[in-house]
């Protein structure tokens, strides 16, 4: 019995030391996140009404599903299709609209309790973004940041997405910055001009970049002889996207010192470490979670182990590490 107690206490002690040595806590704005892993918008809906309850509460921060000015029913199904090591989705920003969203917010906040929340907005005009940002200020004290989902087509520019036009993106950031005081995140498309976008948006008051959104793609149903998705095309996510997102984060890091949330295809501790080394300060865990709901635990454990084995004190020490001498 004495020996057993000793082993138990020794193990507990080792575990305590191990935890203390491999702290993943990281600052975002003025708040410390328990870990640098952030849910990208849309992947887990509004969080509280899904069967991933326990797992998603362990995230460092949670980005809520993008809100629009009015309710959106979303696209015609089928809305998802598998691809080699990934998936395409064309959900179409289904959401209840900002009014309903704000009514639901107390429930969302209560569900997440300690997990910090990021609100995500998207508009069809610059004014939509400004209006939405103003509305979100009603709950500003309960949020750590506001994300601008710039992947929506700008109706005033003939349907070209905001993120593919530096000028349009600047206009959105300028207007939103005037009404939003906390951290502002610009979510970029892989098709963005990262150099111009990085430099321009930084000077318009963006505090954090989120790179990248999904990559446009298609699949076809050869038996039905038509596109697999009801909306014809969708956005590629999952491990297949990883090399693309790593390159985007790498390019963006070359032009900005602002924090980057690296998103796209992270599916393991190793791929998360790659993302940090490419230049990300935080890493989005997205659709790979659908393939492996234990992913967050595996990534947290794996990254901690990597830090210890390589005598590194924290995440900050691996951020942009691959840029040294490059």
């Amino acid at each position: 019995m004495g020996l057993l107690s000793f082993i138990f206490i020794a193990n507990f002690f080792c575990f305590f030391i191990w935890c203390a040595m491999s702290n993943l806590r990281i600052k975002l704005d003025k708040k410390f996140l328990e870990n640098p892993f952030i849910a990208p918008s849309g992947v887990f809906g509004l969080g509280y009404d899904v069967s991933f309850d326990y797992e998603i509460k362990k995230l460092g921060a949670f980005t809520m599903k993008t809100a629009t000015t009015k309710k959106r029913d979303g696209n015609v199904p089928p809305r998802t299709v598998e691809t080699p090591a990934g998936m395409l989705n064309s959900i179409g920003l289904q959401n209840p609209g900002i009014d309903e969203y704000l009514k639901l917010f107390p429930t969302i906040k209560k569900f997440f309790s300690k997990c910090p929340l990021i609100f995500s907005i998207s508009g069809e005009t610059v004014d939509d973004f400004e209006y939405l940002a103003k509305r979100v200020t009603e709950i500003e004290s309960d949020l750590i940041a506001l994300e601008l989902n710039l992947s929506c087509p700008n109706l005033r520019s003939g349907g070209v997405t905001f993120s593919s036009s530096v000028k349009d993106s600047i206009e959105v950031c300028k207007k939103v910055r005037k009404v939003w005081g906390k951290s502002l995140i610009a979510k970029l498309s892989p098709l963005s001009d990262f150099k111009e976008m990085g430099i321009s948006l930084e000077s318009e008051g963006v505090n954090i970049f989120c790179a990248i959104n999904t990559l446009p793609g298609m699949r076809f149903d050869i038996y039905k002889r038509k596109p697999s998705l009801g909306n014809f095309h969708g956005g590629l996510s999952g491990p297949a996207l990883l090399p693309v997102s790593l390159k985007c984060v790498w390019d963006l890091r070359k032009v900005t010192k602002l924090p980057i949330i690296g998103v796209g295809g992270v599916y393991s501790a190793e791929s998360a470490i790659e993302m940090f080394m490419a230049g990300a300060n935080y890493v989005g865990i997205g659709s790979a979670y659908y393939n492996n709901p234990d992913l967050l635990d595996e990534v947290i454990g794996g990254v901690k182990k990597f830090l210890i084995e390589n005598d590194l004190k924290g995440i900050d020490e691996i951020v942009s590490l691959a840029h040294k001498d490059a």
Partner: peptide
């Protein structure tokens, strides 16, 4: 895709 009600992909 998710089987958990999160992604809104399987709607009817």
């Amino acid at each position: 895709a998710c089987g958990a009600g999160a992604c809104m992909g399987c709607v009817v």
